[in-house]
Amino acid sequence: MPTKEEVLEKLKNGVIQYDEDACKEGANEAIAIGMDGNEAIFEGLVAGMEEVGRLFEAQEYFVPEILMCADALYAGLDILKPHCKQMDLGVKGAVVIGTVEGDVHDIGKNLVKMMFDVAGFTVYDLGRDVPLDQFVEEQLRTDSELVCLSAMMTTSMIGMPKVIEKIKARNPNVMIMIGGAPTSKELADKWGADGYAEDASNALKEAIKMVSFLKNLRAEKEAEKKG
């Protein structure tokens, strides 16, 4: 039987080395030795993704590596997800995510979606080229706390303020994040969005930050329990 540390190391390195088989193996071992699914995800897979984010910033990794790492992470996540206890971290929620009408670029959106999956959010993925009103309807239907809009082209980005306005008019408490190459902090402020990410890698970085925050919160709670 491998030790807990060995399993976590395997999961972490599996993500960094974009080795799907290692991630699957690590995930199965984690279950075999009765490890908590969340621990395996946060201390193993997410720890690996944090390092991947760093490697990308250092220009050691490029887009293909990031995507292969993401695939490896999902390979492990798919196995671990059914073995996760519901976490109580005070932040829970549902998110509606999609690429706006006229745009079919969704790599960034998918990376962000992955980190929401990891963090235990319920994700309502509308896919790409999504009609503007569908965001509004889906938010109302699911009562999600968060809506993420993505676009890579300026021409499709111009639909974003309309969606933001409509959602905020019906439910001012919904948080809205926008992302994609043409977006900027200024535009996000002007349109009343609550956050923004420039491109797939920045979105990933932001999402990693968010998940790292959850990870620390989790560690604190665990420590409290023990203490």
């Binding site: 292969m68 993401a70 999902y74 990376l111």
Partner: peptide, 20 residues
């Protein structure tokens, strides 16, 4: 570094890397 493009690349979907 490497990127493998499989023989049936047009039929592979649902993975991140398949978009490349």
């Amino acid at each position: 570094r490497y990127l493998s493009i499989p023989p049936d690349s047009d039929r592979r979907k649902g993975k991140f890397i398949s978009r490349l």
